[in-house]
Design a binder for these strands. Structure first.
Lengths: 357, 357
DNA sequence: ACTGGCACTCGCTACAGTCGAGTGCCAGGA
DNA sequence: TCCTGGCACTCGACTGTAGCGAGTGCCAGT
């Protein structure tokens, strides 16, 4: 893979090879910008009126014909203007747009919104609502992933003689509880021992590193505590291994109805269905790559239900580490530069907030 | 207020006074049933064909005219069939319908869905999805209300010398955590004392009864622990008094798109907006009355955004106590008997499940 | 290589006409 | 008194036609 600056040059070259000179790219940029703001197919005449292209509509038409042939734009109907294709948006995002700086008002909104959060739940809920409000789209925030957290403390609360509540507090602020059915009655003193032993061994460890530690723990434990510790460790491991434990917050679904029924080809159904599936959401924003912002446009998306949507997502976390993902989902006809800027900014602020705790 | 059987007789009498004999009621019932299943205005001819009314279309037309005059049905257009009004649905629900018994398949689905829940979160999530799936509508489940819970255990986990994580475990299974900023450094031994004292005083108490206990706790505590206990108690009380702490789970929003755009007069916007507001949801299903099932039809609803929707809700809890509410939201054109039956059944199963823990 | 001109396409809107479901009303019959 | 068959009427849904206009592709000219 080439270095970080190479791809732009590559793209430029490749684009050139296709016969797209700078003016044609300017035309594409103008089409995307106009279409995003007006939501109507844009024609050659309107284009030259609203942008200083320095050429006549006829010339623009010729450029448009080339752009269409290359698959960057298309005509909804023969007698209509042009609309960007997913490929057109992709080129726009990669080559033709600069990330918009946030307005001071937006910065203020972010800060005001996030201060005063008392709780991880609170932070996540505020974040997701903020993101939905600023981008006017559907926002998704993943809770800090357990896999990337460390154990801060394990607590065992007796419910009855054969039942414990296991509470795990992670350094990211997440708190998970599990009911543990013990194989037999365990006296209160033994519970204290179990807790002490477990904390000595596991506190501070990254959750992903615990399986061998838990294994050792079970083996080292005094014989009379062995059965209890075994069930305990089973539950504990399931809490870690099972990635079902990822949690997600969602907000702004009402924003899907903006722009009437034009976006999403008239039916919100598939979108709403996809948003109900945690697995789908996790794949969308659960960052796999480095900390770069990811933009998935239309059919680049792996889920059929989301073919009419775009997703902008990024990772967040204290400092430079990443503990979870967040992002927004909207129509392919989306203000990419603005959305990308907002998503990044919110992720950064949340990261700072987490770093303070 | 009259006894439990009186209202029906009252309604019958009042209805009679309006000149609605049994046949007219049968016509209304038939209209509601047909309209609910076909989603199209129902005419006199179709009615006599599909139901054994024993009279001619003309007679039915006369009855319809009366029903319309009384406000139970209306015509969308002059040359169309009749559609029930909110008032018509109300009469139907109160007088003309029996709660449908659940099918064995549904009972099995409920049982299968709810066994194997490991966690309160798990129970709530499974429940809300189950409810959405069975009723094919939007389901809402309130977590067990803190106000109706008792303290099972308080845990204090040191984060740093001046920071504690306060974890409260309630008997309903809810676990709440709060970060506590102490006024000054507190040694580890003192934290243990704080925990012991707090648990001695508060464990077992209903949360609504704790304010005086917390007050006493602060006063009784040794002087050197006083400042820490004071901040602790502040946080604790805010966790209880602030009813912001109610939590809600939601599922099935995709079901809003069933029935095309006919339901909800063409726009999901107001509905989706309402569903984003926790306060609204709580008012909807947070049961105020006794354990009876509540049905709110159309404009009986206090929120303008939900004028086109109906809500069926009830309380749930272990045994006969009630710790939270659950329900569904759908179009006024809804299978009320079936929905009511399902909501009740799910609430009962969840109650049993909670009773086991 | 760009531009003005021109013929062409085709979606959108308005309008007129037909069809048919459904109604209200009335006179006659049980 | 209540029900019924018959009949005229209403009006939404659908169809077909025509004109408009935005927008295009192409071509000849500079």
């Amino acid at each position: 893979m080439p270095g970080p600056t190479a791809p732009a040059a590559d793209v430029r070259q490749e684009v050139r090879r296709m016969g797209l000179d700078d003016r044609k790219l300017a035309v594409l940029r103008a089409i995307v910008e106009d279409y995003v703001s007006t939501q109507e197919p844009v024609g050659s005449k309107a284009l030259v009126e609203r942008h200083q292209l320095g050429v006549s509509p006829a010339t623009v038409r010729n450029d448009m014909a080339v752009l269409e042939e290359e698959g960057y734009i298309r005509q909804p109907h023969t007698s209509a203007g042009r609309v960007p294709t997913d490929r057109g948006y992709r080129l726009f995002v990669d080559r033709l747009s600069r990330v918009k700086p946030l307005s001071p008002a937006e910065r203020r909104a972010i800060e005001r919104f996030l201060v005063g959060a008392v709780d991880l739940d609170d932070v996540v809920h505020r974040t997701v609502r903020l993101l939905a409000q600023l981008t006017r789209q559907v926002a998704v925030v993943q809770y800090p992933s357990l896999a990337r957290s460390s154990v801060r403390h394990l607590e065992l609360v007796p419910i009855s003689t054969t039942r414990l509540m296991l509470v795990m507090i992670a350094d990211t602020g997440r708190v998970e509880q599990r009911l543990v059915e013990l194989p037999g009655p365990v006296p209160a003193d033994d519970v204290i021992d179990l807790r002490r032993l477990a904390n000595e061994k596991l506190a501070g460890a990254r959750l992903s590193d615990t399986p061998p530690l838990v294994q050792a723990l079970v083996e080292e434990v005094p014989a009379e505590l062995r059965p209890a510790m075994t069930t305990l460790s089973t539950v504990l491991l399931e809490t870690l291994v099972e990635r079902h434990e990822e949690r997600i917050a969602l907000a702004g679904t009402a924003n899907l109805t903006r722009g009437g029924l034009l976006d999403f080809q008239g039916s919100l159904r598939p979108i709403l269905e996809a948003l109900e599936e945690e697995v789908v959401l996790l794949k969308l924003i659960g960052e796999t790559e480095p900390s770069t912002t990811r933009v998935l446009i239309g059919d680049e998306n792996e889920f059929d239900n989301l073919r009419a949507a775009s997703v902008v997502s990024t990772g967040y976390g204290p400092g430079t580490t990443i503990v979870g993902g967040l992002g927004v989902l909207g129509p392919t006809r989306m203000d990419y530069p603005g959305t990308i800027a907002t998503v990044r900014a919110v992720a950064r602020y949340v990261g700072e907030l987490l770093a303070q705790n």
